[in-house]
Amino acid sequence: MTDLFYAYHNVIDLCLLNSMLAFGCFILLGVNLFSLATGGLMAIGAYLSIWLTMQQGWSFAPALTAALVAASLAAFGLGSLVLRLRGDYFTMATLAFTEVVRIIALNWDSVTGGALGVFGIPQLTETWQLAGLLALVIYLIWAVRHSAVGERMRAIAADELAVSTAGHDVARFKLALFTASGAIAGLGGGLAAHLNMFIAPGDFGFLRSVDTVIAPVLGGVWNLAGPVIGASVLVVLPEALRFSAQMREILIGVTMLAVVLFLPAGLVGLPKLSRRRAAS
């Protein structure tokens, strides 16, 4: 068992980290917000935290806290501006944000190392920290979902107008969720930066944002297991398909397509489906 852990601990770390990040998108998908801001918000958390640990001599926990706070504030500011946009326009605006952050990171050499990236980052992120923080995120989301606030979330997903005529400020509610998702992305960014010894602006771009939002869609948007399953599949699948670089992308794409077409509830819907098959 310990051998297995050492052989695969990179994969396990990535599963845990990406699951946590996926929850940031999961809470937004719950109110029909499809955000691609994750990459940009992660970058803010990542660069701030390594600057604090490497150049300011901060220890890990306060640096992570700072990353979380900074990304929350950034999400609050971004959300105030772009949450009024509808559907596709909101998604495009969040993508633009991620691109702007990436381009700033490319050019701000003194902090980000420019296109070459930052080397020699201390590896402070431990598997138990990732597991503990993921558990905390899951618990918090579970507690909110099983409360009147969770009911309001489901109501907003179904009919915003009905919720606002019931006396609730839907815009403020979405801004709070967006800020919370920023907190998760910032924390995840700080953890990701201290997981490997190297980061570069490309690590936090469009693809990172897309991967993070795809994970809950793949796993299931309505079930707390969804983001964990989706993110883990997205980590493990490319490893399993390592034999061919081209086939890899294609097979991942095909898997996504199949899930969207045949499992609208995501992979968490799979057992129910096979049970129904067995019964009939």
């Binding site: 409360s147 009147a148 606030v149 489901r154 109501a155 179904a158 005529t165 019931a166 006396g167």
Partner: peptide, 22 residues
């Protein structure tokens, strides 16, 4: 009618309550 179909009747009503929520 604009009820939330996947909430119960009671949850639809409590959605609009003025009594302090948690």
């Amino acid at each position: 009618i604009r009820l939330i179909p996947d909430l119960t009747a009671l949850q639809n009503v409590t959605l609009a309550l003025r009594t302090p929520s948690a």
